[in-house]
């Protein structure tokens, strides 16, 4: 009996092995890409962060000196604070405005207008950052920009959007939200369409008004989409580079310089590859830590059907 059982298990094992083989084979392209283009450079950066290397001379082992220098870098605090402020404002506005636009599009809008509106909201997403930012400079220039021209017409003072510490980071947020809010609106719209109609209908039958419907049915069921959008927005926010590089070049001073700009400056302007890598490792730890926290917190507020 047991002998016969083993005979039956043998083909099963063979099948499982074959399935596993094919499974791994299909995974291979993605896994190889991930290892070569993500894990490899990450480990490389970790290794380089222990070196003193200017690209042009042979590297020297520096131990933890670059990490020690992080603590004494007077600019790093301002730049980290800029980046955190940017991320908070950027995530907040992208989520709120994205949700608002998605709810607007889900409402009773004529089909043609709905399509046009989706196209209009999503169009900035597909335009390259550099081209769009170059155009936005014409909008935002203090003395000759279009935006200030209209503000001036209605009697308001000209705002130094790009040339003052007070406004430069806000301008980068404004641009980034314009550029990306369409993406988040589409994510939320897809999430809204996935909410079962019978649940909303049941709530309406039970006498729920629009606000109650939104608060107790729509938003809870949309939390998986919101969670996904926040994770993506947060990671993208910490990686912000081109927007600020083109609009403000990080200035005035360091007032709109972000962490990735600083990594680029230290690595490719100052040729301090070791120090740049240590800043990159620090940023990685911050982003990974925050993402982990989000996943932990998500167990409390994300509801899957």
């Amino acid at each position: 009996m047991s002998h016969g059982g083993e005979e039956r298990r043998e083909p099963m094992r063979s099948l499982a092995r074959r399935e596993a083989f094919w499974g791994y084979l299909f995974l291979l392209p993605t896994a190889a890409g991930f290892l070569i283009f993500v894990v490899g450079p990450m480990l490389g950066a970790l290794g380089v962060s222990l070196l003193k290397w200017d690209l042009l001379s042979p590297p020297r082992f520096a131990g933890a000196a670059n990490y020690g220098a992080l603590l004494q870098d007077g600019r790093l605090g301002i730049i980290l604070s800029n980046t955190v402020l940017f991320v908070i404002a950027d995530v907040l506005f992208n989520m709120l405005l994205g949700l608002f636009l998605a709810l607007l599009l889900r409402g009773k809008v004529a089909r043609g207008i709905g399509y046009l509106a989706r196209l209009a909201f999503f169009f900035p997403v597909i335009v390259s950052v550099s081209s769009a930012a170059a155009i936005w400079i014409f909008f935002l220039q203090k003395d000759l920009g279009i935006l200030n021209y209209y503000l001036h017409l209605i009697g308001l003072p000209r705002i130094p959007w790009l040339g003052s510490s007070q406004w430069s980071l806000r301008s980068v947020v404004l641009f980034d939200v314009w550029k990306n809010v369409g993406f988040y609106a589409m994510v939320f719209l897809a999430g809204l369409h996935n909410i079962p109609v019978q649940l909303t209908e049941a709530a309406v039958v039970d006498g729920a008004n629009e606000r109650q419907l939104l608060r107790h049915v729509t938003l809870p069921l949309l939390t998986p989409s919101i969670f996904f959008a926040i994770v993506i927005a947060l990671i993208n926010g910490f990686q912000v580079f081109a927007q600020a590089q083109i609009l403000t070049r990080g200035g005035p001073g360091d007032s709109s310089r972000t962490m990735v700009m600083y990594i680029y400056e230290q690595g490719f302007r100052y040729f301090q590859m070791g120090y740049a890598s240590s800043v990159a490792v620090m940023l990685f730890v911050v982003v990974a830590g925050l993402t982990l926290l989000q996943f932990r917190a998500s167990e409390r507020w994300v509801f899957y059907q």
Binding site: P160, G163, S164, S165, R249, G250, G251, P252, G253, D254, E265, R269, Y270, F271
Partner: peptide, 22 residues
């Protein structure tokens, strides 16, 4: 030597001077 760094440093302060913030 180190021109790239020199240029970056200089421009950081020029932007603060012309903006009137320093």
């Amino acid at each position: 030597p180190g021109f790239n760094k020199v240029e970056s440093i200089w421009l950081r302060y020029v932007s603060q001077m012309t903006s009137g913030e320093m």
